[in-house]
Design a protein around this nucleic acid. Structure first.
Lengths: 80, 80
DNA sequence: TCATAATGTTGTATATACACAACAAAAATT
DNA sequence: AATTTTTGTTGTGTATATACAACATTATGA
């Protein structure tokens, strides 16, 4: 299973699943499935989502769990 | 359809499809399908392949056609 | 040249991604 | 509080990713 940050990226933009679904051309329930981890996006959909959010694909999808925002920020600070 | 550089990355390493298939845990014919563009890899397989070749995913897969090596090198030179 | 390995092709079967519908529950808006 | 929007759940149908097998073709190597 591939982890993703779709929900975070979406809510950050104040969008509903329906909004996002329309933007990338899928059914709104498909977004729900991905957010809940019911199944993986196809490569094609993963690229569309990454492009929509303007992030590289592996910033939105990863074979390993993402850090939380807190961990991320702490790691960045530690790396200074 | 998503473009990929699997064949280039594989032959560069002097590997057969069978070798690569075993390394990422799929049937060797699946590699052939991907190389020929018969269908897309799943996100999961795309990540395994990128990791195997030690490149970021979007260096091995792209929604837009890859440049040839010649174009790539010319572009790099022009960017100096 | 002969044998072997690598690749392409066709066909069948299965798992999974996605669409769509109906309805329930929760959250947001008025 | 009532209405509307958003999200979750279940179920069914279809398309596509992958496995596997058999055989043809092409390349490699002894």
């Amino acid at each position: 299973m591939i982890y993703n940050r779709i929900k975070m990226l979406r809510t950050e933009k104040g969008l509903s699943r329906k909004d996002l679904a329309e933007a990338v051309g899928v059914n709104f329930q498909t977004i729900g499935y991905l957010e809940r981890g019911d199944y993986n996006a196809s490569l094609e959909l993963a690229f569309k989502l990454a492009e929509f959010f303007e992030v590289p694909l592996d910033m939105a999808f990863s074979p390993r769990p993402f850090k939380t925002l807190a961990e991320e920020l702490a790691a960045m600070k530690a790396a200074e």
